Amino acid sequence: MELDDVMTTSEAAERWGLARDTVKYSCLGRNGAPPRFKKGEFKKSGARVWLVTRQGMERLYGPEKK
């Protein structure tokens, strides 16, 4: 895994053309639903920062928007 394969939810949202909250709620779950990311595809870092992997983003949202 490369360093570019791990990113914040804000960076991932920008790279995939999504709203930041879309990626964040995929980490947290929403309305009682479990997180959409699988174990090892996301992690909380510090008080407010969530990290996600490229593999998780591609699994949920398809290839990165170039």
Rank of each mutant, 00 (worst) to 15 (best):
T22C: 10
F37C: 06
F37I: 04
A47V: 15
Y61P: 01
E11M: 14
K65C: 02
Q55R: 13
P35G: 08
A33G: 06
L3G: 01
V23G: 04
N31V: 08
R36G: 00
G46I: 09
R54V: 01
R48D: 09
K65A: 05
Q55M: 08
R59C: 06
L18K: 14
L28F: 12
R48S: 13
F42P: 04
E41Y: 11
R48T: 13
V23Q: 03
V52Q: 00
K39C: 07
G29C: 09
R36Q: 12
R36N: 05
V6K: 04
S26A: 15
K24T: 15
A33M: 12
D21P: 02
Y25V: 10
T9R: 06
R54W: 00
P63T: 05
R20V: 14
N31C: 09
K66C: 07
L51G: 07
R30N: 12
L3C: 08
T53G: 01
M1V: 01
Y61T: 00
D4Y: 04
S26C: 15
G40F: 11
K44I: 06
P34Q: 11
S45G: 07
T22K: 12
S26D: 14
R54Y: 02
W50S: 08
T22F: 05
L3P: 05
E11S: 14
S10M: 09
M57F: 00
G46A: 06
S45H: 14
L60E: 01
K43C: 13
P34M: 08
G32Q: 06
G40Q: 09
S26F: 09
R15V: 00
R15M: 11
G17W: 07
W16C: 03
R30P: 00
G40P: 10
D4F: 03
G62C: 10
V52P: 00
D4L: 06
R20Q: 13
L18D: 07
L3H: 11
L60K: 03
G17M: 03
R30I: 13
R30L: 14
K39A: 14
D4K: 09
A13W: 09
R54C: 01
W50R: 08
E41P: 12
L18I: 03
G32M: 01
F42G: 03
P35M: 06
K39N: 11
G40I: 08
A33N: 13
R20W: 10
E58F: 01
W16S: 03
P35L: 06
R36K: 14
Q55A: 15
F42L: 04
K39Y: 10
T53H: 00
M1R: 04
T8C: 07
Y25I: 06
G56F: 04
Y61E: 02
Y25D: 12
M1G: 14
E58P: 00
F42R: 07
A19D: 12
M7I: 10
P35F: 06
C27D: 04
V52K: 01
A33E: 14
V6C: 02
V23Y: 05
F37N: 01
R48M: 10
L18C: 05
E14D: 14
G17F: 05
V23W: 05
V49D: 13
E2F: 03
L18Q: 07
P35E: 04
R20G: 07
L3N: 10
C27F: 05
P34W: 05
V23S: 05
E14S: 12
D21K: 09
A12K: 02
